[in-house]
């Protein structure tokens, strides 16, 4: 399709969309005053999360308990797309096996400055600690496996920023990252199946609920948080590794 035709098509359909959208706006409730009918579900979750589930963060309760099965599906979308990226970027038979060649020959290689290296090394352990804190406190305060997993995955990135790709590969070898991702994804299913065995319902809570506001509260939700954290961290680090292996010119360590 010619670009001008495409643009014309876009403008026409956007104009139609704008018309429908403005007409729909008149029927919407103003911001902050939801339709009482559609608000019932959220309000119900808000009122049930502490007395019934002993989870003080309602968002985590929705993710891993009330709608835990949906999150399992979302998690496997993530798993499949990380796997897809890793598969697409694997070494092909027709690719040379040697070290990659810089496409732009003779460019100046700038090393990270001392300030950057020092700061990123100093930030590695706080990032790990904060990541573990966010993963394990998902049922108490905002956080959980998804957020904490991403924070954990930033630690190897900081190692890469501070030093060389080689040290990143030493800290996070491919087999370890892949194992973490797989165990995380499989663990969710295992916890769900444990609920099936103990109470005849997939993802049924089979652990004591604990005291609301306590780290050890929420029963199996806390466990699911851990597995999701493992999977997200593993998946993100794996993405980092495959992209760096694909595009990076491997330099000798200084």
């Amino acid at each position: 399709m010619r670009p001008l035709v495409r643009l014309g098509l876009f403008l026409v359909s956007t104009a139609v969309f704008a018309g429908i959208f403005v007409a729909a706006l008149f029927d919407l409730h103003p911001l902050g005053h939801a339709d009482p009918l559609s608000a019932t579900y959220g309000d119900l979750v808000n009122s049930l999360t502490v007395p019934e589930r002993h989870i003080t963060d309602a968002v985590t309760a929705v993710n891993f308990d009330f709608r835990g099965f949906d999150t399992l599906g979302e998690e496997f979308i993530m798993f499949a797309s990380v796997l897809g990226a890793a598969l697409l970027l694997r070494k092909h038979a027709d690719e040379s096996a040697g070290p990659p060649i810089d496409k732009q020959q003779g460019r100046q290689i700038t090393l990270a400055s001392d300030a950057v290296r020092l700061l990123s090394v100093a930030l590695v352990s706080p990032a790990v600690l904060f990541g573990i804190y966010v993963v394990t406190h998902g049922q108490v305060t905002p956080g959980g496996g998804f957020q904490g997993g991403v924070i954990l995955a930033s630690a190897p990135l900081l190692i890469y920023v501070s030093g060389e790709f080689h040290s990143l590969r030493r800290v996070a070898p491919r087999w370890l990252v892949e194992a973490a991702e797989s165990i995380g994804a499989g663990g969710y299913v295992v916890i769900g199946a444990a609920g099936l065995l103990s109470a005849n319902a997939f993802l049924h809570n089979f652990l004591p609920l604990g005291r609301p506001g306590d780290v050890f509260s929420g029963g199996s939700v806390a466990l699911i948080d851990l597995t999701v954290g493992l999977e997200v961290a593993g998946g993100f680090i794996l993405l980092l590794l495959v992209f760096l292996e694909e595009v990076l010119v491997l330099r000798d360590p200084i």
Binding site: V45, A58, I77, M78, F146, V242, E246
Partner: peptide, 26 residues
């Protein structure tokens, strides 16, 4: 409190979106 359901939807979506972007970039 505000509706937790839509926040939960959004939160998983943010993480999933990044991995989908990675797949597209690959």
């Amino acid at each position: 409190a505000v509706d937790p359901v839509v926040q939960a939807l959004m939160l998983t979506d943010v993480v999933v979106e990044v991995t989908i972007m990675a797949l597209l970039l690959a």
